[in-house]
Amino acid sequence: MRREGSPFQGLGAVALKELADNLSSARMMVLELLIVLTALAALYGAIDSLRQNTAEDPFLLLRLFTVDRAPLPSFVAILGFLIPLMAIGLGFDAINSEHNRRTLSRILAQPIYRDALLMGKFLAGLATLAVSLAALWLMVIGLGLIFLGVPPGGEEIARSLAFLVIAVFYAGVWLSLAMLLSVVFRSPATAALVALGIWLFLTVLWPMLAPALAQVIAPPDPRYAMLGLDTPDTAIWAQTLARLSPNHLFGEAMLAVLSPTTRSLGPVFLDQLRGAVMGAPLPLGQSLLIAWPQTVSLIAGTIILFVAGYIVFQRQEVRA
C-alpha cells in the first residue's frame, strides 16, 4: 500500500526544533566543555612536543592532530574516545523521552509521518555533532597558526577536512546506536546504560578480545613465532575482528588521512613495498583510497543502525 504525501513533511520543523534544543541543553554544554578542555590539554602537549622535536615537517599542522605527549593522548585519540560519549548523550533519550513526556501521540497526530520525527531528530543530532566538531577543527587550526606560526598548506587543510567528515560519520554510528536504544527501551536510563556498556565494550574490551579470538580461530604457526613474526592468518583475523569496533575503524581512517606516510592499514607484504619510497608521503587521493573502506564501513554502520531503529519505531505502538 502506497502512502499519501511525503514522508519528509515536517522534517525541517522537527530538525530545527531539535537542533535548538540540543545546542541550548545543559547536557550538551557540559559535554562540549569537557571535550574542549580535554582537547586543549592534548593540543598544548602536541604543540609543546612539536616545538621541541620538529625541525622541518611539511605537514606540521596535521601533526597537531596526531602527536601525543605522555601522559596525554593525541587530539585524535581523545576524540575517538569522546565523540561516542557526545553522540550517546544526544541520542539515548530521543524517542523514549517523547513517550515519557506523553508528547509522542500529540506530535504524531499532526500531519507528519513517523519518518519525519525520527529522521529530524537524527539529522539534528548529527548537525549538532558536526557543529561541535567543526568548532574543534577551527580551534586546532587557529591554535596551530598562533603557536606554531606556520600557515597550513592546501593539502593539510584538505586532509584535516577529510578528518572532520570522517569524524562526523563516526559520530553518526554512535548516534544511530543511541537512537535505536532510545526506541527499544522506554527508560532513558536503561538506554543510556546499555549504550555506554556497548561503547566501553567496543572501545576498551574488544581491542583486547579480538586478538585472543583470532588466535582461537586461526592458531599461530610456531614457525612464524620462532622468527618473531605474526602468523599472517592470525594477524588478518585479528584485524578483521578488531574492525568490528567503530573506534578501530575511526583510528585506522585517521591514521591514513592524517599521516600521509601511511601506505597500508593491514599487514604489509614484501611485494607491496616493491618500488616504494619509504617515508615519502602519499598524495591525498591515495590516502583517501586507503581510508575509504573504513569510511564506508562507518557510513554503512550508521545506516544499518538507523534503519534498525526506523523499523522498530514504525512497528511500535504510539500510545504512551
Binding site: R3, E4, G5, Q9, R102, S105, R106, A109, Q110, P111, I112, Y113, A320
Partner: peptide
C-alpha cells in the same frame, strides 16, 4: 491517507 485525516482532525490525548 493519514496526512489528509490529520490535517482536519485535532487530537487531545
Amino acid at each position: 491517507s493519514p496526512l489528509r485525516v490529520k490535517r482536519k482532525v485535532g487530537y487531545l490525548p
